[in-house]
Design a protein around this nucleic acid. Structure first.
Lengths: 197, 197, 197, 197
DNA sequence: GATGAATGAGACTTCATTCAT
DNA sequence: AATGAATGAAGTCTCATTCAT
């Protein structure tokens, strides 16, 4: 019987998602046509609309995947059994490494968020907020226990760090002088140094 | 009908530029139609193309304006007669205040840069590079003279700070709890604290 | 409203080509809008661009059709088993009849050739050149064997005759006093008389 | 006081007409914008509309100029004091030379005629008809006096010759192997040979 | 499960012409 | 005599989506 996999072996929906991710990151959501996506995935338009309700859905799937991964990782680091300065450092460094390793996802996430419709936008914002708050809780924990300075509101500290994470997709190049881990160590170091009392 | 600026005394090119700036920031470059721009400016499409060669030109004008202002301000602060830590702090805080005061310009700048054609893109990148290097020179100066830690490469420090500046358009709201100056002081403070030896 | 061919059995691409041929001949390429073509064919613009890459493509299709037909007919007459003066006369007369019977194609061909893009232009010129050379070879054959005068270069003789063929679309009217065949006989006669030694 | 001549010395209307002639011949009437014409002439749009009522008027002026010149020359040759075969040959050769020397005018004339509005079109056709009839009268005169064959209707003979004249703008190149006079002699020769009894 | 022809709205841009100066 | 800002209609083309098969 007819299978949903082509020569490639990968199921069609995943092939479409991979093609869309790459193209959205390369040219942006609006500059990528459905035709280009299906051509890159080696299927036809009918197939895309069989699996996804709209072009918008593809974007939302990318977001959902990124959010799920990042939240899981943050939770794991934040719940670890270690001093708060260690847990914050690990979480701060990990989000950098993960972002670099999925730079396409990150480009899309930080550049195309305003393309979502109202209800999906609300949903994504809620998940982002949850992520932000978990991270902020770490900062506040350290501030309460005296290992971090209280000079700066915790909210602002979180935004300071995530600003640098967003910015990665602007300047990081895989063939640059620093490995993802080195960049992560430096950025986490900067954060921790700024928080020294 | 939807005229925001009526046929008042403002010259047409400036009315168009103002309308485009607001709309590009609100909906993004691709989601803003030329029709919407001319309606907001209260003129016809023909008038727009009388003054600007293309929609792309409007975007480039916004960039040029932002770049000019920011470079001038950075030069002034960097060339001041004060200790390097003071000059870096002032420059770091000023770019935050200026960015908040022109948040529309900033949104466009950091989100729509990839819409420029090749030659304009090259030009903008060159000016951005110049800005980056002037800022980096301040960091390096402090590192050489021993007032800043050399733990982190100066390039990375610059990107760390500018990440937070880019990020402002994502989270800053005029009616939030902090004034632009307060945000600027906090962010400059974080930078300087991170650079303590 | 203005449908000339209703949703009958003819395939859409052929309906579009027929409508374009008629309109290009009537008003010229530039004065014919895509909107007029699709209305005459009873389809929408999207359908046109589904089958043809551009308005220019439609023109090229008309050319390709004319060139193919004319070349086939010339080859048949030129390769026939008859004296050279008979073969030239037959070929010269046939191109007149065929041109009159497809006067729309001819008008377009001789008046709109300069609207083609560079690569298509090159292709059309190459095929025209092949046609010209086949015809010239007939003249030269007769000149070598002494049945035609060598007073005029063969190239010029060919252009002389084809000038009159191009010109047909300027003056020939279907309800005029001469049938296509009579015109053809006269023009072929003039050519052969001019070539008498 | 202000004169209507620029650095150039040539009056503005003539500069406009010369620029329009060149551009119409190069790109065709529809592909030439008023903006291009005024730029080529070194004036502004206001100036063009000061001297000419419309873009269409420019085209008509080109036609009028060509028609006047050709008619004058034909009349001179036809009324000369010489045998009819000499007068026809001279007229036939002269129109070739004159056409080659004004190939731009000819290209426009033979390719853009359908761009004229109804009333100007009627006017041009009337003058063309007068020209055609004067030429035909020469042929008929020779036929009546027995120096030309009566095998072909005189109308058709005229169209045969003028077909080759129209065609010149398609194939003649100034740097080709034949001078204008040589081409003219060959084409007149072909005509006269075709008319031999 | 998947096709691809067809839709129809809307995108950017060009252009001949007018008019106040 | 000449300017050039502004108009407004029309132009070509793109695209997400639908639907009969």
């Amino acid at each position: 019987m007819a299978r949903t996999t082509e020569p490639n072996g990968t199921p069609v929906p995943q092939r479409l998602l991979a093609a869309a991710t790459r193209l959205f990151a390369e040219r942006g959501y609006d500059r990528t046509s459905v035709q280009e996506i299906v051509e890159a995935a080696g299927v036809t338009k009918g197939a895309l609309y069989h699996y996804f309700g709209s072009k918008d859905d593809l974007l939302h799937e990318v977001y959902a995947r990124v959010l799920r991964v990042q939240q899981e990782r943050l939770d794991a680091f934040a719940d670890a059994d270690a001093p708060v300065e260690q847990r914050l450092r690990d979480a701060a460094a990990d989000v950098v490494v993960t972002t670099i390793e999925n730079l396409d996802d990150a480009s899309i996430f930080f550049r195309s968020m305003h393309h979502l419709g109202p209800e999906k936008d609300k949903q994504v914002r809620a998940e982002r907020r949850r992520y932000h708050e978990r991270f902020r809780a770490l900062v506040e924990e350290g501030q309460r226990s005296g290992v971090f300075s209280e000079a700066t509101p915790a909210d602002l500290v979180v935004d300071y760090h995530f600003g640098s994470v967003h910015h990665l997709s602007t300047w990081y190049r895989p063939n640059g002088p620093l490995t993802p881990q080195q960049v992560a160590d430096h950025l986490a170091d900067l954060l921790l140094r700024a928080l020294r009392p």
